[in-house]
Nucleic acid binder design. Structure first.
Lengths: 193, 193
DNA sequence: CCATCCATGTAAGGTGTTACATGATTCA
DNA sequence: TGAATCATGTAACACCTTACATGGATGG
C-alpha cells in the first residue's frame, strides 16, 4: 500500500533508475520501508502506466540499459494527497521475540547465541545511523523544515535501534545460564491478559 | 513463516478454538505477531493436516460448532526445532514515518493531527500494557524462568510503545506551526547516506 | 574470450487483507 | 420470529520473497 509512495518520494528527491532506487532503499528511505529490486521494478512499471512517472529519454533504449525515471505533476499530486490520508499504526512483528515466547514453553538451546548475534547486528546498525547523523545533519543542516523532518526520520531509526540494543541486553542479563527454560513434558499454562 | 509457530506456542499454553486463538492474538501473543481469524483458520487446517495438532473429540462435530485443538508431540518437536533456527531481523515498516519523509518533499496539511492521533493511540496501548504488567507480573511472578521470559516479552511491548510516544512527542514539538514543509514546485534534492 | 559486475526483468509460491457466506445460540 | 452474537469458514486479491533469466559493459 505504501511502496508506490515511497518510490515517488525517492524519485522527487532525485530521479533514479531501478537499481539506484534499490540501493537508496537500503539506506535512507529504507529506515522504515524496505523493498527488493523486484518489487521496485514492478512498481515502476505500474507507476509509469498510471502516468505518475516517466522514463527520461535515453540515447539507446534497450534491455540491460539504465533507465532513469522522473515524477510527473500527476505523481506529485497523488503523493501530496496520500500524505494526508489517515492510517492506523500496524502492530510490529518480531520473529525473535516470538521465539523467546516459544522458548518459555518448549525451551531453547541456541537462543542465547541468537540474542547475541542480533545484539551485534543492531549495535552495528546503530553505529551506522549515528555516523550518518554526524555526516549529513550537522547543526547547520537542522534549520530548514524539510531538513528537520528528514533528521526526525533518521532519529526514529536511531531510537528504534537503541530500543533493540536495550531490550536484547536486558534479555541476555535476564538469562544467566546458557540453557533456556521450558517444561520438559507437562503442559505449561501461561497467564495472559 | 512464523504464524504456525505462534499458533503452536499459543496452543501449548492452552488448547483453544480458532476464535479463542484470535482473541488471544489480540492480546499477549499479539504484542509481536498479529493475525486475523482467517489466517488462523487457514493455518489450523494446515497444522492439522500435517499432524502437528488435532481437534479434541467433540460431542457433535458440525459447522458453526466450537472446535478445540491441542498440540501433538510432533508439533511440540517442530516448535522446539524452530526456536533454534537463526533468522535475521527484518527491518521494521512504518507508513507514518514514510509519510513524514514525503511531507518533507511535497508538504502536508493534516499530518499534525495524524501525529497527535497516533500519539494518543500509543499512549493508550502503553497504559494497557502497564496495567497488564502490574496485574499479571507482580514480583512473585518474576522468579521462574518461563515467567521471566514472558515478562521480558511484555517489557518489549512496553518499551516499544515508549519509543513511539517519545518519537511522536519529539516530532510534534519539532513542528511548531500547523502546516508542514515541502517545496511548492521546484525539485528538492535530499541528502542521503 | 571469459568471468564478473551492472542492470532490468519473469515466474512461482507464500503470506496477509478484505469482503462475504453459513450455521448455531441466545434473548427479546 | 427476528436480531444480535458466536463460531467457522471461502474466495479473491494485493503484497512480498525467492529463484532464476537475459543482456550489456568492463577488466584480465
Amino acid at each position: 500500500m505504501s511502496l508506490p509512495y515511497a518510490i515517488l518520494t525517492a524519485l522527487l528527491e532525485k530521479p533514479s533508475s531501478g537499481l539506484e532506487l534499490t540501493r537508496r532503499f537500503d539506506r535512507s528511505i529504507g529506515y522504515f520501508w524496505s523493498a527488493t529490486h523486484q518489487q521496485i521494478y514492478r512498481e515502476l512499471g505500474k507507476l509509469e502506466q498510471a502516468g505518475y512517472i516517466r522514463a527520461l529519454p535515453a540515447p539507446v533504449p534497450a534491455r540491460g540499459q539504465k533507465k532513469e525515471y522522473e515524477v510527473l505533476p500527476a505523481g506529485r499530486a497523488e503523493l501530496a494527497a496520500w500524505v494526508d490520508v489517515p492510517e492506523d499504526p500496524k502492530p510490529m512483528r518480531s520473529a525473535l521475540i516470538l521465539r523467546m515466547r516459544a522458548a518459555a514453553v518448549v525451551g531453547g538451546h541456541g537462543l542465547r547465541e541468537e540474542l547475541e548475534r542480533h545484539l551485534a547486528l543492531h549495535q552495528r546498525q546503530l553505529a551506522e545511523y549515528l555516523d550518518i547523523e554526524v555526516r549529513d545533519f550537522p547543526p547547520a543542516r537542522r534549520t530548514s523544515e524539510p531538513d528537520r523532518l528528514r533528521h526526525l526520520v533518521l532519529r526514529g531509526g536511531i531510537d528504534l535501534e537503541r530500543f533493540w540494543v536495550h531490550w536484547l541486553t536486558d534479555a541476555l542479563s535476564e538469562l544467566g545460564g546458557d540453557r533456556i527454560g521450558g517444561t520438559p513434558q507437562p503442559t505449561d499454562v501461561g497467564h495472559e491478559a
